[in-house]
């Protein structure tokens, strides 16, 4: 038993090191490119000149890198980690490889809550985050009720109910938007497709303080998730309180998803791409998958944000567009494969 544990720890360590290198590279690239132009190489030099106390220290460039790009990169990393971990948890709990917060409508539900909060004029934190959480819990309950009655949530019924909840959510969102007359509507529209452009350090800190404990909690429950995948009886006989674990995981996940949605809007399919990719590489052990999804998801999102910022000549593409363009084809591919 002991040797097994040390083996797992070694694997976690190795996987995290590799993924951290990926994340670090993405972050350095993210810090060194931006709309103010300039070569990537000089950008990278600028980033490192901060640590070396170089004479080529350019105050304006340092402001841009550390006060504008850095919070944004961190926010992208946190959001990516949260969303891919959320996907992983939903896939394990619902025993459905296609489950994902965005597809299930959890993100849509938080968006309704968040928009209501914005329209009422609540502060971003804790007001909007709170209404977003209520919204996400509401849709989660709705999805579960609609797909209940079966011991194992069947793929099709769960997805169908998710699609319906999502359609309903978008209708409510459009309804709220068409009721709004004022100029805030532009912000909401940008925010709906995922907007990281106004990231600030205190916002990042608040998000980190809310999601990092969730990461830890989910990691502690990762072995229970492994056992639950073996079946209810098996897990029960191994001493897992299935009901409690399920509820804790669902609520924690919805909580962290809704906090990211309230900060930066709807970003879909991240919870599908990373868990699947990593599961292919690493196998199904959740003790490895949870940290891997956190680090890998963070790197993926930072890379997507980099694309969102650099692809268009002027302005930027909403990040949700990039993730959906990568994720939706993958979803169709997975659906096709699971059918055959």
């Amino acid at each position: 038993m002991n040797s097994l544990k040390s083996h797992v720890i070694k694997r976690i360590f190795a996987v995290c090191t590799v993924l951290s290198i990926f994340l670090l590279c993405a972050m350095i690239l993210g810090l060194s490119t931006g709309s103010s132009g300039g070569e990537i190489l000089t950008g990278i030099k600028m980033v490192f000149s901060f640590f070396t106390d170089d004479a080529s220290h350019d105050a304006m460039m340092q402001t841009i890198i550390w006060q504008i790009r850095f919070p944004r990169v961190l926010l992208a990393a946190l959001v990516g980690a949260t969303l891919s971990l959320g996907g992983l948890v939903f896939q394990a709990l619902l025993r459905n490889p296609l489950a994902e917060p965005y597809i299930l409508g959890i993100s849509g539900g938080s968006a309704i809550g968040a928009i209501l909060g914005i329209l009422v004029g609540l502060s971003r934190f804790p007001g909007v985050a709170g209404t977003a959480f209520i919204g996400s819990m509401g849709t989660l309950a709705l999805v579960l009720v609609m797909a209940s009655g079966q011991t194992v949530l069947k793929k099709d019924s769960l997805l169908l109910s998710g699609v319906m909840v999502n359609a309903f959510c978008s209708a409510v969102i459009m309804f709220l938007i068409s009721l709004t007359q004022d100029s805030r509507i532009h912000n909401i529209l940008f925010w709906l497709m995922g907007d990281l452009s106004l990231a600030e350090m205190n916002q990042v800190m608040i998000l980190a303080a809310t999601v990092l404990p969730c990461f830890l909690l989910i990691f502690c429950l990762s072995n229970s998730m492994n056992l639950m995948l073996l079946g209810k009886e098996m897990a029960g006989s191994m001493g897992v309180n299935i009901k409690a674990v399920t509820i804790i995981l669902l609520v924690t996940t919805s909580f962290m998803i809704s906090s990211t949605v309230s900060q930066c809007g709807l970003v879909g399919f991240v919870g599908l791409v990373m868990p699947h990719l990593l599961r292919l590489l690493l196998g199904p052990d959740h003790r490895v998958m949870v940290p891997a999804c956190i680090v890998g998801g963070a790197g993926f999102m930072v890379a997507c944000d980099l694309l969102a910022r650099t692809l268009p000549q002027h302005g930027e593409i909403p990040i949700g567009v990039i993730t959906a363009m990568i994720g939706a084809p993958l979803f169709i591919f997975l659906l096709k494969r699971s059918k055959s």
Binding site: G34, S35, T63, I64, S197, G315
Partner: peptide
Amino acid sequence: PRVGSYVHLDVEKIVS
């Protein structure tokens, strides 16, 4: 030089 649109300002460009 353009600094984003009226409703979606590009803060980095402005600072630069």
